[in-house]
Amino acid sequence: MSDLITIDVSSAEDEYQLHDLLARELDFPSFYGRNWDAFWDTVTGLVEIPGHLRFVGWVHLSESVPRGAAMLASQLDEYRREYRPDLKVEFDGPASFET
């Protein structure tokens, strides 16, 4: 799957809102647990992540939800290394890893 999905994370004010946004934009199942273990389980076994993710509003997310921004960037980096080396991830601000 190589489709581009743009996710605006500028409205997230806490990790629950961030998980809710990710669940909606990435079409996670209704039983998604809204935590980082559940995120990992979902992206590695329950849904197909598109080949290109673009995150806008990253500076706001990094300032408002710094742990969530770091965890999301880290999890996507690990997912790419372990499962999808072709995955392209873009941020409109600094992230914890290079894409």
Rank of each mutant, 00 (worst) to 15 (best):
P50E: 01
S30H: 09
E15P: 02
S10T: 12
S62H: 14
M71A: 15
D37R: 07
W58A: 01
V47N: 09
G33K: 13
L46H: 06
A12K: 03
G68D: 12
I49Y: 00
P85S: 04
Q75A: 12
S2V: 08
L26R: 13
A73Y: 05
A70P: 01
G68P: 06
I7K: 12
P66C: 15
A70C: 05
N35F: 06
G57D: 15
D8M: 03
V65E: 11
T42H: 04
A70H: 11
R84H: 15
L76M: 08
T6L: 12
R80A: 09
L53K: 03
S62A: 11
E48F: 04
G68A: 15
A95Q: 02
A23H: 01
L76Q: 00
V43M: 14
T42V: 12
E25F: 02
R80M: 10
F39D: 05
Y79N: 02
S11W: 03
D77F: 00
D86E: 15
S64G: 07
L61P: 01
I5H: 07
P85C: 07
D37S: 07
D37C: 11
G33Y: 08
R81S: 11
F31H: 15
E48I: 11
D92W: 00
G33F: 02
Y32A: 13
E90S: 06
E13C: 13
H19L: 09
E82A: 08
G33M: 10
L72T: 05
Q17V: 08
Y32V: 02
S96P: 07
S96V: 14
Q17P: 01
D92K: 15
E15C: 05
N35I: 09
V47R: 09
S96L: 04
Y16E: 02
L4G: 03
D86Y: 10
G45H: 09
A95D: 02
G68S: 09
P50M: 04
G51Q: 09
D8R: 07
L87N: 11
L61R: 03
E15H: 09
E90V: 09
V56A: 04
P50N: 02
L72P: 00
R67E: 13
R81P: 04
P66K: 08
E90N: 10
V9H: 13
L61C: 15
S64Q: 13
E13F: 06
E63L: 08
A23L: 06
G57L: 08
R81G: 08
R24W: 00
D77N: 14
L61I: 14
R67Y: 14
E13S: 08
T42Y: 06
P66A: 12
Y83I: 01
Y79D: 06
D77C: 00
L18H: 11
P85Q: 10
E48Y: 05
R81I: 13
A12N: 09
P29W: 06
G68E: 10
D27H: 08
G93R: 03
S30P: 06
F55C: 01
L53H: 07
F31C: 10
D27G: 11
L87S: 05
P85N: 05
L4V: 05
